[in-house]
Structures are given as C-alpha cells and as structure tokens.
Amino acid sequence: MNKEIALEKNAILFVDDEKICHTLVNLVIPNFTKYKVINAHNAEEAVSLGKKYANSICLVLSDIMLPDISGYGIYKIFRKDKKLANIPFVFQSGIPCQEKELKKHLADESVQIIYKPYTQSDLVEMISKVLG
C-alpha cells in the first residue's frame, strides 16, 4: 500500500446513537464531499475507532447526548491522546442554544456546533467551514 494514501486524512468520525442520523450522514458526506464516514454509535466505540483510524480522521462530528459518555467526554479523551489531540470537533445537538454549555465544558473556541435537524447543505457547509 502506498504510504501517502494510507496517511491521507479523508475520513470523518461520526458519533451518534440514532440510526436515522447515521442514514442521513452516510448519504450526504460521501456523495457531497470528498470524505468517507467512520460510524460510531457510542463514546466507547468512538474512542476505539479514533485510535484505530487516527491517521485517517480529519474531523469528529459527534452528538453531545450519548448513552455512555457525552460528546464532551469524547472530546476530552481525544485531547489527551497525542495522535488524536489535533482533530477538529463539530458537535451536533437537538437542543437549541447549547453554546453556553459548550463553552462551559470546553475552552476551545475552534469547536463548532450544528443543531438538529439540519439540512444536507447545512452539514456540507459546516464541514467546509471547519476543513476548508
């Protein structure tokens, strides 16, 4: 395998416990961006997949409310791991106005939030905003 291809950052780690959200994201991201999707359904799976695919992940798109650990918890675990520490995060939430909560939990102004339900163009725009 070509090393350059193996090290290409071309995957978005998507973390959500709702099946319908995975259906939407898996239709939009591969078809309307240049990125692939790595799916996680809870925090434990997200951390495991993050470590496994650290060299490929360019963004984490995570729900805040998860059944095991919150999206904030995933963020903090990633920030403590050298291989995962610089991966940008976008949180998604069905609860409006969680930005104060976000700032309370995280001292990182680069973290973005997108509110559910969002449209295909909202998602593509957010990915473009964060990844350029």
Rank of each mutant, 00 (worst) to 15 (best):
Y115T: 15
I127L: 05
L7T: 14
Y72V: 07
S93T: 01
Y115L: 14
D81M: 08
E44C: 00
K129P: 00
I69W: 00
V60D: 14
I38W: 13
Y72M: 02
I113W: 04
K19F: 02
S128M: 09
V60M: 11
F32T: 06
Q98C: 14
E18H: 07
L131M: 12
K52M: 07
V37I: 06
V15F: 11
L102R: 06
I77W: 00
V124R: 05
F91N: 06
K129S: 12
P88Y: 09
E109R: 13
T23P: 00
Q112S: 08
D68R: 12
K80L: 15
I74Q: 06
K36Q: 12
H105C: 09
V37N: 12
P96N: 01
G50Y: 02
D68S: 15
K3C: 02
E8F: 08
A54S: 02
I12Q: 13
I29E: 14
I114Y: 10
L59S: 14
P30D: 10
I87Q: 07
N39L: 05
E45Q: 10
I77D: 13
F78E: 04
C21K: 01
K100D: 15
I38A: 08
I57D: 12
I38C: 02
S48K: 11
I74T: 07
N42S: 03
L49I: 00
K129V: 06
A107K: 15
A43P: 04
N2P: 11
Q98S: 06
S56M: 07
N26D: 03
T119K: 10
A85C: 09
H41Q: 09
V25P: 09
K52C: 05
A6Y: 04
D17Q: 08
V37L: 09
Y72N: 12
L131V: 03
S128R: 01
L84K: 02
R79M: 13
G73V: 01
L66D: 15
K36E: 13
N86H: 05
E125R: 03
S110F: 11
E101V: 01
L102K: 03
L61V: 10
E45N: 04
I87N: 02
V47H: 00
V28A: 13
L106I: 00
L102Y: 09
G132Q: 04
C58P: 04
P117H: 08
H22W: 11
I74A: 08
L7E: 05
T23E: 03
M1V: 12
V60R: 06
S128E: 11
I64N: 08
K83I: 06
D68P: 15
I64W: 04
D17A: 08
E18M: 14
E101R: 13
V15E: 01
A40N: 11
Q92T: 13
E99S: 03
G132N: 09
Q92M: 13
P30G: 07
A46E: 01
A107W: 03
Y53Q: 07
K100M: 01
I38Q: 11
S121F: 12
F14D: 02
N42C: 10
Y53P: 06
S70D: 10
I20P: 00
K9C: 00
P30A: 00
Q120Y: 11
L59T: 10
L24E: 07
D108C: 06
A85M: 13
L84E: 09
V37D: 12
N39I: 08
D108L: 00
P67V: 06
F91I: 07
H22M: 01
